[in-house]
Amino acid sequence: MMSCEEFTDEVGEYIEGTLPFGERIQMWLHAFLCDHCKTYLQQMRDVADLMGELGERWREHPEEEAPEELKGDLLDSYREKVDGESTE
């Protein structure tokens, strides 16, 4: 059986679903038999979920807004570009 250390090294690949079938089975079996590694696996999934949640919150309330001046400049460029195309 693989060691716990090997399990933690492979856990990223396991979560990504990129391990070959045989190794995937070994990982599954290890996690089934080893509570510590099962906890570790779950925590790594929790971390990914929490970061997803952080992303959700940032989408609802962005951390920072574009400075008004930049927005104004970009809008000007955008307008120019659109106008330029419509008169071509």
Partner: peptide, 19 residues
């Protein structure tokens, strides 16, 4: 040429782009 849409696009992605 919808300027509102363009502004919304900036607002939506600016912070993530900075990161």
């Amino acid at each position: 040429g919808d300027e509102k849409a363009f502004e919304a696009l900036i607002d939506r992605h600016y912070a993530a782009m900075i990161r």
